[in-house]
Amino acid sequence: MKKYFSRRYLGIPYMVFLILFVIVPVLVILYYALTNGEGQFTLSNLFGFFSSGYAIGTLVYSIFIASVVTLVCLLLAYPAAYILAKGRIRKSNVLLLLFITPMWINFTLRITALKEVLTAIEGNISYYPFLNTIIGMTYDFLPFMILPLYTTISKLDDTLSEAAQDLGAGSAKVFLKVTLPLSVPGIISGIMMVFLPAMTNYVILDMLYNSTFIMGSLIGSYFAAYDWHNGSMISIILLFIILLVNIVTGSFTDDGAGRRRAVL
């Protein structure tokens, strides 16, 4: 008789679950993306995407929007994270929590609040679609940028910047040559947490002014039209972009697991 019950058997249910509901769904959409209604292999969904001006326009526009949102988040969050980590502010850990707490309020409710405020300020929010898109997404994603930046910056070794100072570097030079390069891993995980959701979260746009000219919404509209094949193709293209971004950035981050909502 075996003395030990092997603990590794406990992993079997989860492994089965992952295969059934994580791996198989990806294979199924891959199959749908590469077939037509009759189940025949075809690349027409792929060519269809790249020959449709609307689809390409959406892709380019989403990348553009996501880049602007990521940049704005970074510009707002980096100083905040730096101040919290190195500013010698009293109770900075409590303050950090304040920056993260908004994540616990349902994002559709937060966007509702923002929409009311923007309407009160601008009169009619449809006059400024681009500005409101950027404000809305920045508002929603900012906490996800602050957290990884804070984690990285607070781990930086102060003696390095002190050494640079002792060797005669001015404070701007110390920041550019020491602090900033060392915080790159945090910047990269922050970008990952903001850029990809910004490309796909079409609900924010939808709520702000009923327009959905963004990658994620293409899936939504094909879904509404019961067009599984083209919807799957968009999903696969998005998945490919996500994979690409992960491979490119993977070498820079401390822990790849960082993405989104790593609260608590």
Partner: peptide
């Protein structure tokens, strides 16, 4: 993965 893609798949 994007939540849209997870949900859709």
């Amino acid at each position: 993965n994007a939540d849209v893609v997870t949900g859709f798949s």
